[in-house]
Design a protein around this nucleic acid. Structure first.
Length: 145
DNA sequence: GCCAACGTTGGC
DNA sequence: GCCAACGTTGGC
């Protein structure tokens, strides 16, 4: 099964990539948006995700790996309806990629983030993923995909 | 601080 | 089922 690529959005004041690195893993939960949930259900173990900081930062800061398939979020009123997943940090970008740079890049014009900034889980293409991490100073092939 | 986009709620 | 009002989020 080919692994998929995602972009996960978080408020760094609430949860940041550096916290993820410090803790070594986290439980990605609390998604209460139908569209985001539908994407989250499509995530599978081994998928990778860019981590984007919204708010003051507005930049992609790193890459995380999904360590297990999504499972019910016990914090929700209807645990059957909502899911969560476990992720771990893979690597931080050498330089963060600000939203302003993303907007100027032709290859990233179709990025869902630009149209629906409120979506907390969204799919991205291989090209978009590669483009962003290269903008972040990571050479293609520098990590094991 | 403001506005745009989106989601939710409630009246009809 | 429609739509207005309101709340939330996020960017500027």
């Amino acid at each position: 099964m080919a692994s998929k690529l995602w972009l996960l959005k978080t408020e760094p004041e609430t949860f940041s990539f550096s916290t993820l690195i410090k803790e070594g893993k986290t439980n990605w939960n609390g998604v209460r948006n139908f569209q985001a949930r539908n994407f989250l259900r499509m995530v599978q173990a081994g998928d990778r995700a860019l981590i984007y900081h919204s708010g003051k930062e507005k930049a992609v800061v790193g890459v995380a790996e999904v360590t297990g398939n999504p499972y019910p979020d016990p914090d929700s009123e209807n645990p059957g309806d909502w899911v969560q997943m476990d992720i771990r940090p893979q690597f931080a970008l050498e330089s963060r990629v600000p939203l302003s740079d993303i907007k100027e890049k032709d290859a990233l014009r179709g990025l869902l983030l630009l149209k629906q900034s409120r979506l907390s889980v969204m799919p991205i293409t291989e090209t978009e993923f590669q483009t962003i991490i290269e903008m972040g100073g990571i050479e293609k092939g520098e990590f094991c995909g």
